[in-house]
Amino acid sequence: MRGVTGLVAGIAGLLSMAPPVTPEWLLPAVAVTFVWTGLFAWIAWRWGLAIWLVSGELLLTTVLCLLQDRLVPSELLSGGASWIAGVVTMTIVVVSLAWTPLAAVLGGLVVAVAHLVGAQAAGVSDGGYTAAGINIIQIGATAVLATLLREAVRASDVLLSQLRDFEERATVEQERRTDERVQNSRMHGSFLATLMIVGAGGIRVTSPMLRETAATQLSELERIAQTTEPRAAFVALDQRVRTVTARAGLKVKEHLSPCAVPWFVADAFAEALAEALANVHRHAGTDTAEVRLTTDDAQVQIEVVDHGTGFDRSSVPDHRYGIRISIIERLEAVGGTATVASDRQGTRVDLRWSP
């Protein structure tokens, strides 16, 4: 805004040159105005309205005001329509934006007084008081507007700070809920499954396998409750898949591409895969399965395929959470997707995640 005003004012000064104004005075004044306008605009854009920059603006405008009798024709001075009057108005606005209200009013009064003195020296018919009154009104109005603007900015900063705090709390709560769902999924996929089988009479006598399984799951439960150390940022998903398939109790044919993913994504894949293989072992009527891990720039995919008896998704009771929570919602919790398709030729579980 200051740059445009300075440019327009300088051009107006050149176009309005008439006696007693002479080129010897006007041309250097306009040249200095153009140079200062360019420097002011560049410095303000790069570093803001520094105190020294606004002080320089105040000084230049004051000098121009005191030289009105040599820079502005007398007929233009009486109406306050001179090119210097435009510079005065812009300087008052700049000072109000850059300085505190009290300092801005004092700086504006310096310019207003200089403008009045210069007008009287040029012999203006009304003594320059009309322009002085206009300047005083401008000083008061810009000071009030600048104060209101600062108050609005401060209020906006407070609201933005409160919004950021709310978003942070919401993010923490969301992460807490996600972690809670993950732990519930782990409980269902391992601990509760074992307890439900025993409680339902599926295992009537103890066995070395049952003892080993219970001990392993108890250790995992203690690790979940006690672990506080940070996890590695990325882990090898193919290695996690091999670990899961080795414990599945099935003959698993593997096709695994090397792949590294964030640890929480690897956890989600591993737990969903373990649940899918457990369902094959429990319900498919077959002891073989195939696991494929593929990856490209767009996504990571794990497919679990068996050629067992298959099942009807609509016939799964509502209280059975294996597919819905341990597979589908487990992947969704980390931004992935999971689909389960089954017919008489077998079942296919498709797990996907995109970076």
Rank of each mutant, 00 (worst) to 15 (best):
98 A>C: 00
112 A>F: 00
116 L>I: 01
121 A>T: 08
94 V>A: 14
110 V>M: 04
101 P>E: 03
134 I>Q: 14
109 L>Q: 09
143 A>S: 14
94 V>T: 13
105 V>L: 08
96 S>V: 04
114 A>V: 00
96 S>D: 08
84 I>W: 07
134 I>R: 14
106 L>D: 07
121 A>L: 14
118 G>N: 01
99 W>N: 01
137 I>D: 13
121 A>P: 00
129 Y>K: 05
97 L>A: 07
128 G>L: 02
137 I>M: 14
105 V>I: 13
140 G>F: 11
122 A>K: 03
120 Q>F: 03
91 T>C: 11
116 L>A: 07
142 T>Y: 11
87 V>L: 15
140 G>K: 07
95 V>Y: 00
122 A>L: 02
91 T>L: 01
124 V>R: 01
137 I>E: 11
111 V>R: 00
100 T>A: 12
132 A>S: 10
137 I>R: 13
123 G>A: 12
109 L>G: 01
110 V>L: 07
136 I>C: 13
130 T>A: 12
138 Q>E: 15
117 V>Q: 05
112 A>Y: 01
109 L>I: 11
99 W>T: 01
88 V>T: 04
139 I>Q: 09
124 V>N: 06
118 G>L: 01
93 V>R: 09
109 L>M: 13
99 W>H: 03
97 L>E: 06
110 V>T: 08
114 A>H: 01
135 N>S: 15
103 A>R: 09
104 A>C: 03
137 I>V: 14
89 T>Y: 12
112 A>K: 00
127 G>F: 07
136 I>Q: 14
85 A>H: 11
87 V>K: 13
123 G>P: 05
97 L>S: 06
102 L>G: 03
135 N>D: 15
97 L>Q: 08
115 H>W: 10
129 Y>Q: 09
117 V>I: 11
143 A>N: 04
143 A>T: 13
133 G>L: 12
112 A>V: 01
87 V>R: 15
139 I>P: 06
117 V>K: 03
93 V>Y: 10
104 A>H: 01
136 I>G: 13
84 I>N: 13
98 A>E: 00
143 A>C: 09
137 I>A: 15
94 V>H: 02
84 I>G: 12
141 A>W: 11
99 W>F: 09
118 G>V: 02
91 T>M: 08
108 G>H: 06
110 V>A: 10
128 G>N: 09
89 T>N: 09
90 M>N: 12
119 A>K: 02
123 G>W: 08
89 T>S: 13
117 V>N: 05
136 I>Y: 14
96 S>Q: 09
86 G>M: 01
100 T>Q: 08
119 A>D: 12
95 V>A: 13
137 I>G: 14
100 T>S: 13
135 N>H: 13
85 A>V: 05
124 V>H: 05
118 G>C: 02
126 D>P: 01
132 A>Q: 09
104 A>Y: 00
140 G>W: 10
109 L>K: 03
133 G>I: 06
95 V>S: 11
109 L>T: 04
98 A>Y: 00
129 Y>W: 15
125 S>D: 14
97 L>Y: 06
140 G>L: 14
111 V>I: 07
88 V>Y: 02
130 T>S: 13
127 G>D: 08
133 G>D: 10
89 T>Q: 11
117 V>T: 10
116 L>G: 04
